[in-house]
Design a protein around this nucleic acid. Structure first.
Lengths: 165, 165
DNA sequence: AGATCTCCGACCCCGCTGGTAGGATTGACG
DNA sequence: CGTCAATCCTACCAGCGGGGTCGGAGATCT
């Protein structure tokens, strides 16, 4: 398994946020109910998103969370990094701020790294590529198509909301 | 982290096998020492490779393991699947024999899957693509370039050295 | 004041990873 | 034939990180 539930819940949370307008904040409780996720756990997850400035919060009654950015400008690589830390295919994989290296166990990185280095680099590249290509807006649109929101609200309208911003 | 040490050790083991000729089997002990990996643990790993027919074994004295195939024809997707089971970006990801689906927690797969489905599918695709593009032969060549075997001996002769012991 | 919210730290259970131990079989060689 | 060197197989175990809960403290609206 690559990602943990932190990534999944975090993304689902963002998608849900994307479906609402960015005008008013949405409370975590509402988000948790909408996605049927444990509230207490979501608190810790959304904290990660906030620390990465992908989301901002207003406290107190009628408070909640909002996206800080247009969903079309929010790519998944930022999201996943914010949630999971580094995207590493292997524990010996160190993403030393835009210069990934592979220092393998046992041989204390004599500069070369072991035979698997080439493979892990490629895999990580493949993942990052896909993450960078995927925007939150796409996921929102996808979710909209799958589950055209609760009440009779026109799907077209909702999509318009998403694309309009 | 995507892969566990099973994948890493397994690949390193195959690379080491690839460096020797396929004429004579190499004992696990020799492989373990060459890669500085725990022998007992390697036993369990190589068993997975054998079950997938990527390797065959001869028992008894002077026995060991050999590749069943030309390294150039052995792609990493087979290897990783043999070692790790399914390559799934998420635990809700089910690779139902060449028809991957995403059945998300909580909503017992009403056919649609949750908002993150699109993302996980892409990521998995990215990983598989890279794995399929990478052959064992490449990794062997890479390792050969990084660590041109112990002494200054020519590569062709390295097999002779190994078989000599 | 009181109802909602966000925030924050401590705690906890459990499955899996990574590894060990020990023995049973099988084959080559003297 | 006995012995040594291998593969095989099963059981066991410690540690840790994932996934979650709890309780409370600080904002902020009505």
């Amino acid at each position: 398994m690559i990602f943990t539930t932190k990534a999944e819940y975090g993304v689902r949370l963002l998608v849900e946020l994307g479906r609402h307008g960015a005008d008013q904040p949405v409370s975590l409780k509402a988000l948790a109910e909408a996605e049927e996720l444990p509230l207490a756990y979501l608190e810790r997850i959304v904290a990660l998103l906030k620390k990465a400035d992908l989301v901002d919060s207003t406290r107190g009654a009628h408070g909640g969370y909002r996206l800080t950015r247009d969903p079309a400008d929010l790519t998944m690589d930022e999201v996943i990094v914010a949630l999971e830390g580094t995207v590493a295919p292997m524990n010996c994989f160190v993403d030393d701020s835009d210069s990934p290296r592979v220092l393998c166990s046992h041989q204390a990185d004599s500069g070369q790294g072991c035979a698997t280095k080439l493979l892990w680099m490629r895999v990580q590249g493949g993942v990052m590529e896909k993450l960078q290509q995927t925007t939150l807006a796409e996921l929102v649109a996808f979710a909209e198509r799958e589950t055209p929101s609760r009440p009779g609200r026109a799907t077209a309208e909702t999509a318009a909301v998403a694309s309009a911003r």
